[in-house]
Amino acid sequence: MLLVIGYGNPLRRDDGVGPWLVEYVSCVIPDPFIEWRTCLQLTPEWAEPLSRADCAIFVDATAEGHSGQVMWSRLEVLDDLQSRGIVHHLIPQDLLTAAHFLYGARPDAYLLTVTGEDFSYGQGFSPSVQAQLPLAIEYLSSAASIQALLHFSPE
């Protein structure tokens, strides 16, 4: 199973780009091997479904980089699960590490980010993020399709 998780707060403008992208692309690629999920933030419960996935793609907004920048990176398991000592709010590497330590799973995992500039209260994206949505959609569509093919291509 390919698990795609878009997370962020849709009421904090650009922070909501992750869920928005996942909801949009899930309508375009109705692949039975892909599980599309959205949430406000990552919490420890996600470690369990992640442990059942062959591959995972996290989709998030970031403040790093220049506004509207679309970035793709591979995620690795952290050495120390406890280093960040957190309860509610996790980053994808925490979940990946938790899936490994708690459930013995090590799915391939990737992170797609879009750099936001406006994280204030409200709905709708800043012009720079809005302008890059087509590129982000293409990235996510292609990545999800490729990963689904790689992991679930017929013998």
Binding site: P44, A47, Q82, G85, F101, L102, Y103
Partner: peptide, 21 residues
């Protein structure tokens, strides 16, 4: 304090950590 979290629990009682989740 760095170990006093749900993942710190895993090192001592992994079942308890998984049960919580």
């Amino acid at each position: 304090p760095a170990k006093r979290n749900v993942f710190g629990v895993h090192e001592v009682e992994p079942t308890l950590a998984r049960d919580g989740i």
